[in-house]
């Protein structure tokens, strides 16, 4: 199928996803405002919004979306490679409702959605020290939440360097890290593009990694490398 046909097919689904985020936010905003932005309700609403976005991804992929689930620990740090701006929503396909993410400033500026994620306890890393981010991550984990992190920070086509911060938080909070490999979303919606291509996608949950296997001075560093290896191996990027 030629490239432009693939894009023509995907465009309505991207438009539907963004319209959905805006319109559902518009209707829900007065309720949350009047009820004082209750965290649990907001996270349930974000889960609902995310599942619908994932439905759009399913259609945009030409019904070729595959999800490989595993056993999910109760509270954990979820890490994945970061090929696409829709990555945040992949965890909802695994049924994770009590989720917060560590993100830079820009998602917090999206109308309605930004306010919801802020009030739901998502962690804005912009302008904060590593200690502050680790402190907020530990606090979220202690409240029984799962924390999603993209250790590459910025979206990339080929998996880049994994920062150790999330792994340091996992070691200090003594909670497992669950890696996820995201295949195909980078090709569907590459950086700088807003028009998705019709390509197959696959989300694969990998085996949880215990922080107890990574103690000592280089613990977080080694854990980051280990998890990155697991993901790149699954993606077929490993040389």
């Amino acid at each position: 199928m030629p490239d432009f046909i693939k894009k023509l097919y995907g465009a309505p689904f991207a438009a539907a996803a963004w319209t959905w985020l805006f319109v559902s936010g518009l209707f829900a905003a007065p309720y949350f405002y009047l009820t004082g932005y209750k965290e649990n309700e907001l996270r349930n609403f974000l889960y609902f919004q995310g599942r619908i976005v994932q439905l759009a991804v399913f259609f945009a992929s030409g019904f070729r979306k595959k999800i490989v689930k595993g056993k999910m620990p109760e509270r954990s740090i979820l890490v994945a490679n970061h090929p696409c701006m829709y990555d945040t929503f992949i965890f909802f396909d695994f049924g994770v409702k009590n989720l917060v993410c560590i993100a830079k400033d820009w998602p917090f500026k999206i109308i309605f959605y930004g306010k919801f994620i802020e009030k739901a306890g998502y962690i804005n890393s912009e302008g904060k020290t590593a200690e502050e981010i680790i402190g907020e991550t530990r606090a979220a984990l202690e409240r029984g939440l799962n924390v999603a992190v993209f250790p590459e920070g910025t979206r990339s086509k080929v998996t880049g360097r994994f920062r150790s911060l999330a792994f340091e938080a996992a070691i200090r909070a003594d909670c497992p890290v669950v890696p996820f490999a995201i295949k195909g979303l980078g090709e569907m919606l590459p950086r700088g593009s807003y028009c998705p291509k019709c390509v197959p996608v696959e989300y694969i949950q990998l085996e949880a990694v215990s922080p107890r296997d990574f103690q000592g001075e280089l613990g977080a560093h080694n854990m980051a490398k280990h998890v990155k290896n697991m993901i790149t191996e699954k993606l077929g990027e490993k040389k």
Binding site: S125, G127, K128, T129, A130, E131, E132, I133, I134, G153, R163, S164, L165, E168, E217, L218, A220, H221
Partner: peptide, 28 residues
């Protein structure tokens, strides 16, 4: 950015054989 601070501390501790973690002022 601030997410890199942990890695910076680790590589500098290794390079100089010193303890930075207890101070953790690198982010500033």
């Amino acid at each position: 950015d601030s997410l890199d601070a942990v890695d910076m501390v680790i590589v500098l501790e290794q390079a100089f054989k010193i303890k930075i973690r207890t101070n953790y002022e690198v982010g500033k």
